[in-house]
Design a protein around this nucleic acid. Structure first.
Lengths: 214, 214
DNA sequence: CCTCGTAGGTGTATGCCGTACGCCAAAACT
DNA sequence: AGTTTTGGCGTACGGCATACACCTACGAGG
């Protein structure tokens, strides 16, 4: 529904209508709108995010094949923590990219959303594999999650504000105008990945051989 | 008003009541609620953010004294781009920290908010002083702004969700529980600054002598 | 001086929204 | 058979943003 009609079109009434029920019937299954939003986030993020978690613990898939192709699906640490982290970050981008309108809800409810919690645990596992101790892991998680949230939020707003014709930055800000113009022509996925690599670099998780600087 | 009664208490009716007017009188000055929100963000961020911009261009203050104390107020580049950038990032944190309830509005409207645009221009100036060319500046701005938005959003949610008693992360996520506990006891300002330094490190703006690696 | 446009304000009304409350049918369990 | 539980319905309330029409006071132009 959000993909079709946008986030403001999500209301108790519209959801009930979609199910051919009469609004108040929803309250048999959900405490209030807040809880319904949580379920929406679960649904939207779960499908994509749990690709990584499920397949890693699922012996039905052949690990010898998959791990060579997709570093996220791999449970073995040979892929390198940096590559795994980068893949997890892009996985989150992919998840919200599949349903862009859900992003405001996802940001507000990610603390109570199981798929998002699983994702963060996976992030911490990769950080532990990289040799970071607990305090550094906490700091690294904070930096990475902050970047992801902010970057997705920026991308979301850029997509929304692009419709009318331009925010028309005054010529008082030449550097900003140039930077925004450059960003408008660039590939969002590339920009996201570049920023993610920057944060990983700052964490000392360079593209080098491995956790050599513990 | 938002500081006193919270963000949901902001409505056309309540604002009009605060001014002893009759709701519809507001529409003489404002197109719609959206525009009022922009004014709120201007007001909330402007006071703190423009400290840096105004004083840098204001010859009334003695630069010899101020620049030695506060690197943000200094127009001379001798303070080092890294220190100036860090100070600008913390300035933004301070601005929204003065009115925490405004953060959702600030995130949504920062694209059309003059103080926020000035702040970004200042960021780009410091990045240029650090020797970054235009494409690198754009990438660096994206990384820094993303981090700031995400970090403030996380801090905001932590402050809100702390009331009931805990989100109670299931014991299925041991690493996450430990990281969240560590984060709960730590100083938010320190955590913000640590993350900011991490991003700056990743951008190659290390604490070294200067822009030596252009 | 008088008129008249307009800035500022009011009152009313519409159509959304979330949701509290109470009633009702069918099904499930005792 | 009776009773509880489950799922659903209708109504109603208060709050929201805002469209529309109306009024009032005031300042400038004739």
């Amino acid at each position: 529904m959000i993909d079709r009609d946008g986030l403001p079109a999500l209301s108790m009434r519209t959801v009930a209508a979609e199910l051919d029920r009469r609004t108040m019937a929803l309250y048999r299954y959900v405490e209030d709108r807040e809880e319904l939003e949580c379920l929406v986030v679960d649904l939207a993020l779960g499908g994509v995010l749990d690709r990584a978690v499920d397949s890693a613990a699922d012996p039905a898939v052949d690990p010898a094949v998959d791990s060579a192709v997709d570093p996220v699906r791999s449970a073995v640490p040979s892929a390198g923590p940096r590559v795994r982290l980068l893949a997890l970050l892009e996985l989150m981008r992919e998840a919200v990219g599949a349903h862009p309108g859900v992003l405001p809800l996802a940001v507000r409810h990610h603390g109570g959303c199981p798929p998002a919690l699983r994702w963060r645990e996976r992030l911490l596992e990769a950080l532990a594999d990289a040799g970071l101790d607990a305090p550094r892991r906490a700091a690294a998680l904070h930096a990475l999650v902050s970047y992801v949230i902010g970057a997705l939020e920026l991308e979301h707003q850029a997509a929304v504000a692009a419709a009318p014709g331009g925010a028309s930055v005054p010529e008082t800000f030449p550097l900003l105008a140039a930077a925004l113009a450059a960003r408008a022509t660039a590939d969002p996925a590339q920009a996201f990945a570049d920023g993610a690599r920057t944060v990983l670099d700052g964490l000392g998780l360079g593209p080098g051989p491995g956790p050599g600087l513990g």
